[in-house]
């Protein structure tokens, strides 16, 4: 097997707040190969965004990576100096954020924001950089890119702004893009277009992609592999077909059951009872057991260790056996 573009091993990112230590990411491991798309699925507060920021080296105090390794092209990037990580950030690893209305600086021209991203990593004159920026805008389907370079973010619609953000992410032809719910804030029709574009661009350029979302139906059509996160941990991991067709963890099954489908029209949607526990006050053993129908005393005794190799589940009573 070829070396993965990104391999995260037992990553732990904790926030040291006044109320206590929040283990936002606790023992998370996964990897993405070149040209592959990994879907990182979970509810709000499950730690998926913090995982993304950890990879970017953008975890702000009181948060800090306390354990594990992030191997990017074989090199551990945890604990690199700010200057070294800055060379990678935006250059080899790019990120797309959730809300396109908030990610672009409102008072700077699109050109400024694109050219600076190029010139932060390469000694290129302004005009060449501008031409590259224009081509990138064209590549993501923005009409008349030359004129749009001189526009300000507020002159774009939400979907167009997200395209600009994607163009910025693609500028330096990164090896990995972390996309944090990039379609959540968009209209459904635009969502479809953006999904299609990103998928196409990632496949064409052989860029590895981590797609963070709470929406299972989005990753179903997009990803090669899925990691389901719950309370800071990956509870299930596997290929899209395996996870969606034969979920092993009760939480994954609950998520799938709560997606509306045409077949079950008119019947009430299945809900997962209860809410995710506070990360400050996790129950003993399995974090999901209070909401799980299959839980018993064994679940409270100790946190389940991951079972399986490539296909993995953290559950004592999985719905299907993985090996």
């Amino acid at each position: 097997m070829t070396e993965a573009t990104l391999r995260v091993e037992s990553l732990q990112t904790h926030f040291f707040t006044k109320a206590g230590i929040v283990k936002a990411v606790d023992d998370v491991s996964f990897s993405v190969a070149r040209g592959k798309i990994l879907g990182l699925v979970g509810e709000s507060g499950s730690g998926k965004t913090v995982t993304g920021f950890s990879i970017m080296g953008l975890v702000d105090p009181p948060g800090r990576i306390v354990g594990g390794r992030i191997l990017f092209n074989g090199q551990d990037i945890v604990g690199l100096s700010e200057d070294r990580i800055r060379e990678i950030r935006g250059n080899r690893i790019a990120m797309i954020f959730q809300d396109p209305m908030m990610t672009l600086n409102p008072v700077l021209k699109v050109e400024t924001q694109m050219v600076e991203a190029i010139r932060a990593h390469a000694d290129i004159d302004r005009l060449t950089a501008r031409n590259r920026a224009r081509d990138a805008l064209g590549q993501v389907g923005i009409p008349s890119p030359e004129e749009r370079l001189d526009a300000y973010p507020h002159q774009f619609s939400g979907g167009m702004r997200q395209r600009v953000a994607i163009a910025i992410a693609l500028l330096n032809k990164p090896d990995l893009i972390v996309a944090d719910e990039p379609t959540t804030a968009l209209d459904v029709t635009i969502q479809g277009q953006i999904l299609y574009e990103i998928q196409k661009l990632a496949r064409e350029t052989k860029t590895a992609l981590i797609w963070i979302t709470h929406d299972l139906s989005v990753v179903a059509s997009l990803a090669d592999e899925i990691c389901v996160m719950y309370a800071g941990r990956i509870v299930e991991r596997g290929s899209v077909d395996e996870v969606l067709d034969r979920p092993a963890h009760p939480y994954t099954a609950g998520l799938i059951g709560s997606v509306p489908s045409r077949n079950a029209k008119g019947t009430p949607l299945v809900q997962i009872p209860g809410v995710m526990p506070s990360l400050l006050n996790l129950p003993s053993g399995c974090a999901f057991r209070q909401r799980c129908a299959r839980a018993d005393d064994a679940c409270a005794a100790a946190a389940p260790e991951p079972v399986g190799a490539r296909r993995q589940v953290r559950c004592i009573h999985p719905l299907t056996e993985v090996a």
Partner: peptide
Amino acid sequence: DYVKFARAKGLTQRRVVFVH
């Protein structure tokens, strides 16, 4: 978010603070 995004582009902290 725009500050975090600017940092995610790999800009120096100086540029993020003094320009953005």
